[in-house]
Design a binder for these strands. Structure first.
Length: 739
DNA sequence: AGCACGCCGACT
DNA sequence: GTCGGCGTGCTC
């Protein structure tokens, strides 16, 4: 009855591999959830033990012993392992790769699950018995001694010395010289200690209602959609709910979108809560990520704030999960293991039996439908802080109007008025660069990317043509390569071009352009934001980046330069996205004494979205749009999965999908999976991208269960199709966009 | 995914 | 006569 280790390996295979235990002694606690180093093929891999069993289908001669235990006790606890196995099944993705996505890089590479060694300071025996007041000639030393005495065996991390007033490091060395303190290297995580200096304001009625709801719900699973406009105090609710969970000795996980929201939220949390916290986002290096992960796992971090992958952080004492801006698309991983961190957060909360709070001003239709169907509690924050009024919306019909680089006369008039009153103006244009098209006026030639079905964007300042879909760029031609004419013209507007015309129209007003190009340099974003918060008239001009997170209290006018693109997008989610964007952009503006005004330029002023959204608000729009989705049988009233494929050779992607489609249809037609439609394959909306031809196959079902039954029987066999090796392919369950 | 093994074109 | 193309088979 030899024991066998079943190991998930980071390879795109749907099978686990069985190994004999390492020859070394078996650590008492070792088992499922531990990493092992194993021989695999002619190399070595780090895998995770998913089961210890006594039976194997593998012939004895094939079994090789694992090389070594990398963890003496489970790195991933039972609930987390179970969640990851569930996720692998739900997304029909190999378990080894799912586990890989859940682990920090260093752990994937086999590093020990240990904190970095850091310099620490402690009191000595002599220091413990010395009255700090005895050092009255050296107040800094006295202060530090008192602190070290209070910390006792925990000690003080040297990096915290830097944050203390005065030359704390010198004081520490002086204490050491007196024999009162000593320093040494000790393994510890880098934790942010909350200051807890801010006194909480009294909660408003609707905020209190959310907290009461949480309290009444007790400790069980309780999904809540928390809908509140910008400035309605969602963060205050997060803070209070977090305090409640911390008070009962639990940890709190907070998921935030990718764009720089973290610093602001973190600042609020640190000012308010006097507990150790950790952050987890893409800006950290590998060591920092590992430390944060371990701090969560050891329970040292009581609050963990992180982006998408933080949903997999280990939490020994979970009490609450918060998802901020739950509608944000960055919660969906867009390659490899395409999970939705928001959906997994809800599933994790359910399995852990803890509440989960989904906060947003503009709920995703998925979450809204869950709320309307009674699966989630639906709570609202109605009041803007300080009684600020919601901004007023107005549609500017630009049909037939003379546009100056995309600015209508009516918008300019409004800008004049707001700037004259010392207000700030925010202009939103979701297109960076100078112009999206460079055109030869003589022959009609258009500069196009060689590797994509897309036009080059002219970046005038950089003097380059850049493709926004691959990384290619080239110098701007002096003359048309087709006819030799030098009359090359910019068609359409990007932020760079609008910036230029604004400088001409308003020579005395600073214009701040905020897009990926202007914020690429390190620190550039912070500098621009600091400048934006200066008093006095300013024009802020930017892309999507501007719509998220940052609030500009002095902005009184928001102009959306081009709403038309979002109104007729190819994707069935285009309208939902557009509505969310408009409300989010509008939310950047205004405060109590100066209600904001939002002007939306469009060639389609009669569009029903604009009518409903602006006339009756996001909720009315969302409910109406849900009914359209229901009528059309689209999500959230249908379940979808998208099989994408791409290949350098035209036809290879399509060929694979064709074969895959035949198998799917055979399965769907077999009666077992009635109600699953197999649509396609069709070319991707932009067929060629970065030199590859792309195509996709859509599976759509009325019932999630039926879809998943088919996927379970279909997906594992796809790799065995003869055409599978001619294309790169991936399955996207619950795709968020169709491109 | 890697990485082998294994059969057909242009090179020292 | 060999070096190397990528087809297909396997990894416990």
């Amino acid at each position: 009855m030899a024991r066998i280790l079943r190991v998930a390996l980071p390879v795109p295979l749907y099978t686990c591999y069985d190994y004999l235990p390492p020859r070394e002694a078996w650590p008492e606690q070792a088992g499922r959830g531990c990493r092992v180093r194993v021989p695999f093929g002619r190399g070595r891999r780090v895998g995770v033990v998913v089961a210890v069993t006594e039976h194997t289908e593998v012939p004895q001669h094939k079994l090789r012993p694992a090389q070594a235990w990398l963890d003496a006790e489970p790195l991933l606890d039972a609930p987390l392992m179970a969640l990851l196995e569930w996720a692998a099944r739900y997304y029909h993705h190999p378990l080894g790769e799912v586990l890989d996505a859940a682990l920090p890089t260093l752990l994937r590479q086999g590093e020990p699950a240990q904190w970095r060694l850091r310099e620490h300071w402690w009191v000595t025996e002599q220091g413990r018995n010395t009255e700090p007041d005895a050092l009255n000639r050296a107040p800094r030393q006295a202060q530090l001694l008192a602190r070290l005495q209070a910390l006792g065996e925990r000690g003080l991390e040297a990096s915290e010395l830097a944050q203390m007033p005065g030359q704390a490091r010198r004081a520490a060395r002086a204490l050491a010289d007196r024999g009162l303190a000593v320093s040494a290297e000790q393994a510890s995580p880098e934790l942010l200690q909350g200051e807890g200096v801010e006194t909480p304001p009294a909660p408003l009625d609707d905020q209190q209602a959310v907290l009461d709801h949480l309290q009444a719900a007790g400790e069980g699973f309780q999904p809540i959609l928390l809908e509140g406009v910008t400035g309605s105090g969602k963060t205050e609710v997060y803070l209070r709910a977090t305090e409640q969970a911390l008070a009962s000795g639990r940890q709190v996980l907070i998921l935030v979108p990718e764009i720089g929201l973290t610093p602001q939220l973190l600042r609020r949390f640190r000012r308010r809560l006097a507990v150790p916290m950790a952050v987890f986002h893409s800006g950290l290096n590998d060591r920092e990520r590992l430390d944060a992960w371990l701090a969560a796992r050891e329970g040292r971090a009581r609050v963990l704030i992180g982006t998408r992958s933080a949903v997999f952080a280990p939490l020994p004492e979970p009490g609450l999960i918060l998802v901020d801006e739950e509608h944000d698309t960055s919660f969906k991983q867009q390659d490899g293991f395409r999970y939705s961190a928001r959906d997994l957060a809800v599933m994790r909360a359910r399995r852990l039996g803890v509440p989960v709070l989904l906060g947003t001003a503009t709920p995703s239709l998925e979450s809204l439908q869950n709320a309307l169907a009674g699966r989630y509690a639906h709570l609202h924050l109605k009041h803007r802080a300080g009684g600020a009024a919601m901004p007023s919306f107005r549609v500017l019909d630009v049909r037939g109007r003379p546009l100056r680089e995309g600015l209508s006369p009516a918008l300019q008039t409004a800008m004049d008025a707001h700037l004259a009153a010392d207000g700030q103006v925010l202009l939103f244009l979701n297109r960076r660069g100078f112009a999206p098209t460079l055109l030869c006026h003589e022959c009609g030639w258009v500069a196009e990317c060689q590797r994509c079905d897309a036009r080059y964007t002219w970046h005038r300042r950089a003097g380059r043509l850049r493709c926004h879909h691959c990384d290619s760029e080239q110098p701007v031609p002096r003359a048309c390569p087709e006819c030799g004419s030098v009359d090359l013209r910019a068609v359409g507007q990007g932020t760079e071009r609008v910036e230029q015309v604004l400088a001409e129209l308003y020579p005395d007003v600073p214009v701040l352009r905020i897009d990926r190009d202007s914020t690429r340099r390190r620190g550039a974003m912070d500098a621009l934001l600091a400048e934006a918060h200066q008093p006095g008239a300013r024009i802020l001009l930017g892309t999507q980046m501007l719509a998220k997170g940052h609030h500009f209290p002095d902005v009184t006018l928001v102009g959306v330069l081009d709403a038309d693109h979002g109104l007729y997008g190819a994707d069935f989610r285009a309208l939902e996205r557009m509505a969310q964007l408009l409300i989010q952009v509008a939310g950047r503006a205004g405060r109590a004494e100066r209600p904001g005004e939002v002007l939306i330029q469009t060639h389609h002023p009669e569009h029903p979205l604009l009518h409903t959204l602006l006339g009756s608000g996001y909720d009315a729009f969302a409910r109406a749009h849900l009914e359209e989705r229901r009528g059309a049988g689209l999500p959230p009233f249908a379940a979808m999965a998208l099989l994408r494929a791409e290949a350098v050779q035209a036809g290879h992607a399509r060929g694979f999908l064709q074969a895959a489609a035949e198998q799917a249809r055979a399965l769907a037609g077999g009666g077992m999976q009635a109600g699953v439609m197999v649509l396609g394959p069709v070319p991707a909306p932009m067929e060629r991208r970065a030199g590859r031809y792309r195509a996709q196959l859509l599976l759509q079902a009325e019932s999630r269960a039926a879809l998943h039954r088919l996927l379970a029987r279909w997906v594992p066999g796809l790799a065995a199709l003869p055409t599978a090796r001619q294309a790169r392919w991936s399955l996207d369950v619950d795709p968020q966009d169709m491109f």
